[in-house]
């Protein structure tokens, strides 16, 4: 028996503790919004947030998230309402076939929430673990940048540098 919080609700999974989180969510709790694309931690379609951080749920046995806070795509927006990120992705054309979309949205959601920057290069780096074969990423990057800018405007701190620094920036400073 494994107890965890999923989208704000305490849930109990009665199956085997080595069941993968992706299967617990999809088959155990009927939350089929989380997708499985490769089963090797490579495509990012199964990305969910654990304690606010993106992880690939195909690589997590449920026993490892006992007592943790899990967020899935179903936590965003509502039946009739889209979250600002979902809305921006719809309007910018960031979702095509849609199979990578839930994982992409969760990665981007974590980025926006923890203060990620609106610089395209930084966003690209943040999304680099989520493969998309349809869009060429441009519209996705545009949508995320737009939401970050909206966030910064709301907070009135558009001039303040973002907290999460870009690893690209750090890497380009490397010695050659």
């Amino acid at each position: 028996m494994t107890r965890l919080t999923v989208n704000g609700r305490v849930r109990v999974f009665r199956g085997h503790p080595f069941t993968r989180l992706v299967d617990v969510l999809r088959e155990g709790f009927g939350l089929t919004g989380t997708k499985e694309g490769c089963g090797e931690g490579e495509c990012g379609a199964c990305t969910v947030l654990v304690d606010g951080q993106p992880v690939m749920s195909c690589l997590v046995p449920v026993c490892q998230v006992e007592g943790r806070r899990v967020e899935t795509i179903e936590s965003l927006g509502g039946l009739e309402r889209l979250d600002p990120l979902q809305k921006a992705l719809l309007e910018e054309g960031g979702a095509q076939c849609g199979i990578c979309t839930p994982g992409m949205v969760m990665t981007a959601h974590a980025w926006v929430r923890r203060g990620g920057s609106s610089r395209p290069a930084a966003i690209r780096e943040a999304l680099a673990g989520n493969l998309c074969r349809c869009t060429g990423y441009q519209h996705i990057v545009d949508a995320v940048a737009r939401v970050v800018r909206e966030r910064d405007r709301r907070r009135g701190d558009a001039k303040r540098p973002s907290r999460a620094t870009s690893r690209t920036a750090r890497r380009t400073g490397r010695h050659r």
Partner: peptide, 9 residues
Amino acid sequence: EGPDKLRGL
């Protein structure tokens, strides 16, 4: 069909 894809539905 976009909203359903974006909500995981």
